[in-house]
Design a protein around this nucleic acid. Structure first.
Lengths: 221, 221
DNA sequence: CCCGTTCTGTGACTTTCCTCACAGACAGCA
DNA sequence: TGCTGTCTGTGAGGAAAGTCACAGAACGGG
C-alpha cells in the first residue's frame, strides 16, 4: 500500500503519472505495494516468473548475465525513475527472466500488479510513451553492448567504462571485471598500463582518472 | 496507398488489426504505403533518422552491426508478421538507428506514418500487446546474444547456428562468419573439424547437417 | 572450352585473453 | 601488535581467435 509520502516520492520520479485523473491514479496506486530491499539482495534471477511491475524510487539495480564458469557481465543498471524494463518485458512477453537483478545499494521500489500496469499503459499516454522510450533505450544500449563485446578490445572497453564513472572511482578490480565480463587479473594488468601512461592513478579500492581525453581517445580507436 | 489485395495480405500477417473497427482501420491503413524492396538493398543504416513504421508482408530483413575493420555481426532477423522493432524503437525513443538493416530477399512492407502508428498503439489493445511482446522478445534475444558472444566459444555458437538452420544449409562460410561476428577462415576451420567428427558434410555453398544431437550437445557444453 | 570470379582449404604467425599460482600490501579487529 | 581476510601485482604458460598469404576447386558466362 502506498502511503502519502511514498506516493509523492513516486510522482516526483514518474511525473507522467500526474496526467492521470487523481481518482483513477489513486485507485491504481493503492494496489501497489512498496518494498525496501537491502543492498546485495538478489531481486530476480534466471528462469523465475515475474510477479509485478516495479517502479524504482531510490537505490539502483544491477542487471547481469553470468557464465557457467563464474564470470559475470553487466547488461545494464536501473536507477530511480527508470523502472525495470526487463520485468515489463517478462510481464508483456509472458516469459520468465533471463538475467539476474541485484540491488547495488539499499533500494526502494513500488510494485504494481500486472493488471494495474496494463491499465496504466492503456489509459495514460505519457506513461505509455515513457515505457516505450525505456524499451527503446535498453534495446539501443544492448545493441551497443553486443557490438562492444564482439568487436572491441577489453582495454578500450575498460577505458570507456572508466570515463563513464564518477571520479574518483571507488570499486575493486573484481567489480570492474564483472561489469565487463572479464576476470580480475586482466583488469588489473590493463589498469596498470593506463597508470603507466599517466592516465589514471591507482589506490586500494580507488581509481583516480587523471587524463579523461586520453582515455576517451583510446576507447574510440 | 494500400490496395485491396495488400490489405488482405497485411491483415493476414497482423490479425490483431482486425479488432479495430473497419472504418478506423481503413483510415489508418490508407495512409500507409507499400514498398517493394529488392534483395540486398540497405533499408536503413546507422545514424539515419527513421521515416515510418514498417510492417513486413513478405521477405526478410537482416539487422546487423558492423565493426570498423569490416567484420559484421547479425543482431536478429525480421520475418513477415514481425515488424521491425528497431524502427519502432527509433520512432518511440526519438533517436536515429544504431544498426544496419539489409533485405535478405525481395521484401515487401507496408510503412505506416508515425502518427498512424501512435494512434494504433493508443487505440488497439491487441496491437499494443503485440508490439510489447515483440520488444520483449528482441530484448530477450539480445540478452542471449550478449551472453553468447561474451561467454561461449565460437565453435559452440557455430554448432548452435547450424542446428538452428534448415537442412541442408545453402550459404557461404563468409555469410556464417558475418552472422557470428567472426571471419571466414575460422569458420572454415571449425566446419572442417565438425566434418571430421562426422557431424556435417561440406559442399560448395552447402552444409549438410548429419548429426544434430551431437552438434546440440556440443553447443550446450 | 577457356577465363575470371567466387568460394574454400591451409599453413605460419601474432595478439588477446584466460588460467593457475603465489606473494605482497593493506585494513580492521581482537 | 599480530592475525585474518580482502585486495592487488605479477609471472609463466596455454588456448582461442584473428591476420596474412596463397593455392586449388568449382562455377558461370562468353
Amino acid at each position: 500500500m502506498l502511503t502519502g509520502e511514498s506516493k509523492e516520492h513516486l510522482l516526483q520520479h514518474y511525473p507522467m503519472l500526474r496526467e492521470l485523473p487523481a481518482a483513477e491514479r489513486d485507485a491504481l496506486l493503492s494496489a501497489a505495494n512498496v518494498m525496501d530491499i537491502p543492498a546485495g539482495t538478489v531481486i530476480f534471477d534466471e528462469n523465475q516468473p515475474c510477479q509485478g511491475f516495479p517502479l524504482l524510487l531510490s537505490g539502483s539495480v544491477r542487471v547481469s548475465k553470468s557464465s557457467p564458469n563464474g564470470r559475470e557481465l553487466q547488461l545494464y543498471r536501473v536507477g530511480p525513475g527508470e523502472s525495470c524494463i526487463l520485468t515489463s518485458s517478462c510481464l508483456l512477453g509472458h516469459s520468465p527472466y533471463h538475467a539476474r537483478g541485484i540491488a547495488e545499494r539499499d533500494t526502494r521500489m513500488a510494485v504494481l500488479a500486472p493488471t494495474a500496469f496494463k491499465t496504466l499503459i492503456a489509459t495514460c499516454e505519457p506513461f505509455r510513451d515513457y515505457i516505450f522510450a525505456l524499451f527503446s533505450e535498453r534495446l539501443t544500449d544492448l545493441m551497443q553492448l553486443v557490438s562492444a563485446v564482439a568487436f572491441q578490445k577489453l582495454d578500450q572497453r575498460l577505458a570507456a567504462l572508466l570515463v563513464a564513472k564518477a571520479n574518483p572511482i571507488n570499486t575493486t578490480h573484481q567489480a570492474l571485471a564483472d561489469e565487463l565480463g572479464s576476470v580480475r587479473e586482466i583488469v588489473s594488468r590493463l589498469l596498470k598500463n593506463f597508470a603507466e601512461q599517466g592516465w589514471i592513478r591507482l589506490g586500494r579500492e580507488q581509481i583516480e582518472v587523471i587524463d579523461v581525453p586520453a582515455l576517451q581517445r583510446y576507447a574510440a580507436l
